[in-house]
Design a protein around this nucleic acid. Structure first.
Lengths: 128, 128
DNA sequence: CTTCGTTATATGCAGATGCATCTAAATCGG
DNA sequence: CCGATTTAGATGCATCTGCATATAACGAAG
């Protein structure tokens, strides 16, 4: 727990130092970029990111206010909506990755060998 | 990250289900109970728990309001204070441990063998 | 077609967090 | 001893989170 907290907050610090939004934004943008058509339903993002529903709803608000995503109507079910990444959102994700990748490398990669890292990943996946 | 988040929130859920306060309280109480005389300076707790200073200050407020700790004057430095666990605080820590221990066992121990767990611990400690 | 339960998402409110800054005491440099 | 810097801790404010609940559309049952 301590280890994770330390790594995570070190990465957050790198983000802030670079003037970037919080890490959580990355996850959502990345799921959207990976998704077919750059769009997902909120409940799909929820399942992929482990964000709580009410929490995600408001995160989408913030992303939308920054023009990183936009909500679109979902025709087949009037309750739902699409969340669609904008160009600006794609660009932001890439900009974030340029910090995120090296940051992970520095705070994790540099401290473990290739084998150790994969051993760690496999042990952690057992906890899922 | 996902693994840790999942485990942590599973444990939080167990705590809530048992009507207990959030996990963060445990760390502080435990550090105090372990410490000589059941007392520490706030900055010592801060170093041991990785809590941010302003955050700890208010956590102590909450603990104090519940009579789990009490602030006492620190004679040698009038800026500082002691944080002292009360009897109620010790009892609470024990009550929490009765949930925490089994909860860790269930969400972590049950999923890894003895060797795997210690391998995981040693890999994680390398990240510190 | 109405009623009822369910699913998708939003929101009001209280409590928690981060940030910046404040107070006050201690320490250092002359 | 005096002013400048540092250290311990608290706090106002904006944002974020969790909880409960709202809203509104869907689906199933009668």
């Amino acid at each position: 727990m301590r280890a994770q907290q330390r790594v995570l907050s070190a990465i957050e610090r790198d983000f802030k130092a670079a003037g970037l939004p919080p890490l959580g934004w990355y996850d959502v943008l990345w799921e959207l970029v990976k998704a077919e058509g750059g769009r997902l339903r909120p409940f799909e993002i929820e399942a992929r990111t482990l964000l709580a529903q009410y929490n995600l709803s408001r995160l989408i608000d913030r992303l939308e206010k920054e023009d990183l995503v936009r909500r679109e109507a979902f025709d087949e079910d009037a309750r739902g909506c699409w969340v669609v990444v904008t160009e600006k959102g794609r660009a932001m994700r890439e900009r974030m990755w340029q910090i995120y990748g090296p940051s992970i490398a520095r705070h994790v990669g540099a401290k473990l060998s290739e084998e150790e890292a994969s051993a760690l990943a496999s042990l952690l996946s057992r906890l899922g």
